[in-house]
Amino acid sequence: MTTSGTSGAGIPDIVGAAGLTDDDLADLYAYPDTSEPRVRANFVASVDGAISTNGSSSGLTSPLDQRVLKLLRSLADVVLVGAATIRVEDYRGIRIPESGQQRRKTQGLEPVPPLAVVSGRADIDPGSRLFTDTIVPPIILTTAAAPAAAKRDLAAAGAQVVELGPDRVETAAIMDTLVGLGMRRILCEGGPSLAGQLAADDVLDELCVTTAPTVVCGDARRITHTERPARLRMDCKHIIFDTDGFQLARWARKS
């Protein structure tokens, strides 16, 4: 691993992707040693800020981006995703390679983290890959107002269905529920409305962004989408430069 810079002095580490091992990546993206909950979001975006092409992020990703995605999942206690992203990206259950499972076991974690899906209306297909192609059943975070039949169907498909509030899934309830389940290292994979909610409610601690070397124009959303103004000051901890022009940065809340 080739690096320059000193992140401790406020200057990000500059890292060349060539020769990066899984252990190198695990060191770069390691969670701080703290008992406090930690919320990290991970997105891929174009140079001009779009997080999708033709409605999906698949046109922006790269082999290293996918490798880091899997690594971030292997470091997390839970992967938090909005229902719209589950549908658009056709999510299946999390898969962790054997090396990642071994790393998790040494840290006292379950081999594979669950998906926690935020859906105020419980609007998720119980026949989707989220249920049919998974190792760990998902956790559905919904509301009392969601149709009872939909919640029953999701529970029958194997989900742990949790009602959070009367008609809206609030950030505080998400955090209380996940932390109550022993899940303190939370990885949010979108979508932008959920990421915007976490940022506006001041619980977003880190943002990992892969920048694709392309401009896509159009009307795609940005990483965070919310009508509530918020400003979080961030420090760049590292930037990985890949030979294909992709850049992977890790940003953390300014202390």
Rank of each mutant, 00 (worst) to 15 (best):
V68E: 02
R222T: 13
D235G: 08
G16A: 10
V79A: 09
R92Q: 13
K254G: 01
S119F: 07
Q247V: 11
T224N: 09
D235H: 11
G108F: 11
V44K: 08
I86W: 08
Q160F: 03
I96A: 07
S74N: 00
E227F: 15
D244M: 07
S193R: 12
G100L: 11
A30P: 01
V179C: 13
A149M: 03
D13M: 11
I94Q: 09
Y91H: 05
L115Y: 11
V15K: 00
A149I: 04
A76R: 01
R233A: 15
V47R: 07
P229F: 15
G19A: 03
P138N: 09
C188S: 15
G165N: 06
T34V: 14
M1V: 03
L25M: 07
L71Q: 01
R103N: 07
S52I: 09
P126C: 15
V209G: 02
I140C: 00
K254D: 13
G16T: 03
Q160P: 00
A145G: 04
E206P: 01
R250K: 09
I124D: 08
I14R: 06
R95K: 11
S7C: 01
I186Q: 09
Y31M: 11
L248T: 00
A230K: 10
P229G: 15
N54L: 14
D201T: 06
N42D: 09
R184A: 14
A150E: 00
P113K: 12
V44L: 14
T226E: 12
K237V: 15
R73A: 08
M1N: 03
